[in-house]
Amino acid sequence: MNRAVPASEAPERAAAAAPASLTHLQRLEAESIHILREVVAECERPVMLYSVGKDSAVMLHLAVKAFYPALPPFPLLHVDTTWKFRAMYEFRDTTARRLGMQLLVHVNEEGLRLGIGPFTHGSQMHTDVMKTQALRQALDKYGFDAAFGGARRDEEQSRAKERVFSLRSVQHRWDPRQQRPELWALYNARKRPGESLRVFPLSNWTELDVWQYIWLEQIPIVPLYFAAPRPVVERDGTLIMVDDARLPLRPGETPMLKTVRFRTLGCYPLTGAIESNADTVPAILQEMLLARTSERQGRVIDHDAAASMEKKKQEGYF
């Protein structure tokens, strides 16, 4: 992001910033671009895990910048659980077409055949089979040796110590004892045949940074992030959108139209909406500045007590 810093209205602040100094977003952007390029320079077959959410949108935007005027020299991979919001599928295909990038979609066919889904098998099993296992299948199938993910350290306590370059064994396992120290901007991308790296270019971004950057750079995102009237049911204190006919309504439940938006996006039955009127990025930012709950609260999956984040990560979930 190379736009000039606008002259600030507060004189004290203008004095504090030396003319040549970069803003926090410019520094984050430059760091992420550096990371993206290191992987492309040192790995054989990188891929970008594209989850269609806002973090993926920012990561993809950074990739376009990092390799401009060339296209990012890797494909996008969407691990499709088949339970994403319809608007996400639409957005995913439009985005790949707009950028002219190759999009690979992988579904765990075995899971599909067994009919694994969030309602029949619970969120934990669904996530494990359709997301974690599916991801491993896809990485093996194409032989990728490095995969970019959009995770941020501020998302959750156990991520605070995650490396930018995270080594995975031949079985895709994360061995917390084998993680390499990371100093300066010197990332160690070496690995043995079969081992792979997960790389997180947005490690040092916060949710607020992501939104500000989306606003400043006018990055397109899935419309579900913006408030609009949508059919929802309230279930265990969470607003679940009735995105298609697969949502089994419980006795007494009737979808009602509410003006809602989503702070994170995943499988629609597992993603809670919040009531909001914020239908522009500035309005979302404004709401965030006043918000009193964390982003992950909307993820039903986190409430699943048996499955701690740490455990999921060891198994290969992002």
Binding site: V5, P6, S8, E9, A10, R13, A16, A17, S21, L22, T23, H24, L25, R27, L28, L208, Q212, W215, L216, P282, L285
Partner: peptide, 9 residues
Amino acid sequence: LRAQEPRSL
């Protein structure tokens, strides 16, 4: 938003 923008790191 404007107040957010020129922050340093």
